Amino acid sequence: MNANFPTVTIDVILDRHSAKEVLTTILHSILFHRLFGTVKPQTFEVLDVTMPGVSDPEMEQLVTEKVDIFWKGIESGANKRGQMIVTFSEKKAKKSWFQVYVGEEDVPWEQWIVNAEMRQPKSEDRQEFNANLAATLLKALNVMLTHTSSERGRTAVPLITNATGISPFPIKIAVKVGGVELG
């Protein structure tokens, strides 16, 4: 894939107990930082870490659907690693060979890759595992804030020409488990 756009990677190690909640929180936080319409905020408390989210039925349904697909993919297979890839695009005129307009295409301008690995900590390691997961969430939030406020993060955003809805740009969330896209 031609990556002329910023790609931000977040690595997280999860357990069965907190996987859905953590992935939901991370996706909501990414959307919170990259939606440009009128966003009604909400917060998520995970392991004493407060993360921002978007209170919008359509976005909540999208996130829940993708997290469920990820969960089912992890549960049904032997592979305990997967990715959730959030791609923000803009609609651009698609032209043929002779510069004739032939419709529109989605051209990505930014991508967020959440690499997730499932592990089951031993009961005596639970406290340490949760502390590490909380630290990972804080680091992920810091990555989001640093990227979206950086020069590269700001200049990646195309001009907003359509101000209707919560996002003027198409959003795609892809789920991969074992390198295979699901859902």
Rank of each mutant, 00 (worst) to 15 (best):
N2T: 10
A3T: 15
A3V: 13
F5N: 04
P6Y: 13
V12A: 10
I13M: 06
I13R: 13
L14P: 06
D15K: 12
H17E: 12
K20W: 04
E21A: 13
T24I: 11
T25S: 15
I30N: 00
I30P: 03
L31D: 00
L31A: 04
H33C: 10
R34Y: 08
F36A: 03
G37D: 00
T38S: 01
Q42L: 12
Q42G: 02
T43W: 06
F44T: 05
E45P: 01
E45S: 13
V46R: 11
L47C: 11
D48T: 05
V49Y: 06
M51G: 06
M51T: 14
P52R: 07
E58R: 12
E58S: 08
M59W: 09
M59E: 02
E60L: 14
E60Q: 15
E60V: 09
Q61C: 06
L62S: 03
V63F: 05
E65Y: 14
D68N: 14
F70L: 15
W71L: 09
G73P: 07
G73I: 03
E75L: 10
S76A: 15
A78M: 15
N79Q: 14
Q83I: 04
M84A: 07
I85Q: 08
V86W: 08
T87D: 01
T87L: 05
F98G: 11
Q99A: 12
G103D: 01
D106K: 15
V107H: 12
V107P: 03
E110S: 05
E110N: 04
Q111F: 00
V114N: 00
N115P: 02
N115E: 12
E117A: 05
M118S: 06
Q120H: 05
K122G: 01
E124H: 13
R126K: 14
R126I: 04
F129P: 02
L138C: 05
K139L: 10
N142D: 11
S149Q: 15
E151Q: 11
E151V: 10
R154V: 07
R154M: 08
T155F: 09
T155I: 11
A163P: 04
T164G: 01
I166P: 00
P168V: 03
K172C: 02
I173L: 06
A174T: 14
K176G: 00
V177F: 09
L182C: 06
